[in-house]
């Protein structure tokens, strides 16, 4: 931030909220890689939303007379073992990846933040119970936790969302708890209480908004992780079930034809890597803009 804004703020009106947002965006998109990441994400979102218009064929249109074709004019990435146009399959894969990323992270964020808020605000035995459960969840590798949940609930979109949500939730809880602990001694909390605000009001109107910045950073970084988790679960066969078009499934079924058709496993792999990389870049940019102290810790 330029130094003169502070000087101005004293003599003139305080800077408007809009300029705060503009400042954040300017710092965020300072580096070209962040812009590149944002462009990739926008591109993928457009692909996902308009997949039925963009994709050259319907995603589950089989043609058993034209299986495992090499790339051609009619099929830019060739066809898979059931004669489905592979470019179409890869385009539709973006739908599930983005959907799972956004929903699972929101789920994990919402539950984790509320639990962390409760634990940090009330402290004492409430905090002890919640945080020990969080410790236990954090001790389990997310992959193993997801696998166990998916095994018990059976595959499918809902299971994947629940499994990824639970696996990611503890980090939010712990971060939120730490935030609340450092914030609840502030004067504005005392002022609110003196003004007659109840616990719920203090928690959700005062503490929550003031600790949102690091949560946003964590969420943006986690979007890529969630997409990676979904792809891995689907690759292992315990995530989203065929014939849905997801990148993980496409890799695991394409893997069998790797020698003759390397494009089948590699195209969705590259799509996953690019999308996750894009989310990580934008997440890094957001972190630099919102909370430079977190640099390197997330």
């Amino acid at each position: 931030m330029p130094d003169n804004t502070n000087a101005l703020a004293i003599t003139e009106k305080p800077p408007k909220r809009v300029s705060e947002l503009r400042r954040t965006l300017r710092v965020m998109f300072d580096r070209p890689v962040v812009i590149g990441g944002a462009v990739v994400i926008v591109f993928m979102v457009i692909l996902a939303i308009f997949a039925p218009l963009i994709a050259p064929y319907p995603p589950n249109d089989q043609n058993l007379m034209a299986t495992l074709q090499s790339p051609s004019h009619a099929h830019w990435l060739g066809t898979d073992e059931l004669g489905r146009d592979f470019l179409t399959r890869v385009i539709y894969g973006a739908q599930i990846s983005l959907l799972v990323g956004v929903v699972a992270v929101s789920l994990a964020g919402a539950v984790g933040m509320v639990l962390g808020l409760i634990a940090g605000y009330f402290g004492g035995w409430v905090s002890n119970i919640i945080m020990r459960f969080i410790d236990a969840l954090l001790a389990l590798p997310p992959m193993v936790l997801m696998l166990a949940i998916a095994a018990m609930l059976g595959g499918g979109l809902k299971t994947v969302l629940i499994a990824i949500g639970i696996a990611m939730m503890p980090t939010y809880c712990r971060l939120m708890c730490g935030q609340v602990l450092s914030l609840k001694g502030n004067d504005y909390v005392t002022a609110a209480r003196a003004g007659g605000a109840g616990n719920l009001r203090i928690m959700f109107r005062h503490l929550l908004p003031n600790s949102l910045a690091p949560m946003m950073v964590l969420m943006s970084v986690n979007l890529g992780t969630a997409i990676l988790m979904e792809a891995t679960l689907s690759y292992l066969g315990i995530g989203i079930l065929p014939p849905a078009a997801t990148w993980g499934i496409e890799v695991s079924s394409g893997q069998r034809f790797i020698l003759s058709h390397p494009i089948l496993p590699f195209a969705p792999c590259i799509a996953i890597t690019i999308l996750v990389l894009a989310f990580n870049m934008v997440g890094d940019g957001l972190r630099d803009a919102l909370d430079p102290r977190l640099r390197g810790t997330l």
């Binding site: 990676l228 890799v251 893997q255 790797i258 792999c269 996953i272 890597t273 996750v276 990389l277 990580n280």
Partner: peptide, 22 residues
């Protein structure tokens, strides 16, 4: 390092199998 964090492990495995084994 940025790519290494984003890349799925199965991609690395399949890539290795394709080039170094096959």
């Amino acid at each position: 390092a940025n790519i290494g964090i984003a890349v799925p492990i199965f991609f690395l495995g399949i890539l290795g199998i394709y080039f170094f084994a096959l």
